[in-house]
Amino acid sequence: MKVLRPELLNRRSFIITAAAGACLAPLLKSATALAQTADTAPFERTPLFETELKTLLAGAVPTDGKITVDLPEMAENGNFVPITMTVDSPMTDADHVRAIHILSSGNPVAHVATFRLSPLNGRARVQSRMRLARSQDVVVLAELSNGEITMSTMTVKVTLGGCQT
C-alpha cells in the first residue's frame, strides 16, 4: 500500500503552483497592458470613418456645443444602444437644422444614419437604437440652414459587441 508522504505532496503541489504561476504571469502582464491602452489611448478610427467625416464636412470647420447626444457611457449589449440627439435650434424658416448624421468610428460601416429635417419638425430631436461592434467614438453632425456644421463626439465602451455590424 502506498503511503502518502506529506512532504512529497507539498513539493508536488509547490511545483505545480510555481509552474502555473510562471505560465500565467505573462498573460496577466499583457492583460494589464491591454487594459492600460484601452483606458488611455483613443479608440482607433477606421479609414472609412475618416473618409465619411471628410465628405460630410466638405472642408468646413465644425462648431461645438449645439448638439446634445444622449448615449450610455457603457453599453452592455452592442446590438441595441439607445441614442437621442437634440440640436439647439429654433427650427424656423430662417434658422433650422437640415440634417443630422451619425457616424461610428469602429463599425465596419461608418455611416449609421442620416435624418433629414425641416422647419415642419418644430424641434430638432431624433431618437433611435444603434449597433456598436466594439468600444468606439460615435460622432453626430448637424447641418444647419446657414451652412454651419456642428459636431459632437461621444465615447462608448461596449461590453458585448453588436454582432458584425
Binding site: F80, H111, A113, F115, R116, N121, G122, Q127, R129, M130
Partner: peptide, 27 residues
C-alpha cells in the same frame, strides 16, 4: 408624410439595430 407633405426622411445604414425604432418631432 403628413397629408402630402414630407415631414421626415431617414437614410439608414447597417449600424441601426434590428427592428428599427425611430422617433422624431413635428409641429
Amino acid at each position: 408624410k403628413f397629408g402630402d407633405v414630407e415631414v421626415f426622411h431617414a437614410e439608414l445604414g447597417p449600424g441601426i439595430s434590428a427592428n428599427p425604432y425611430i422617433s422624431f418631432q413635428m409641429k
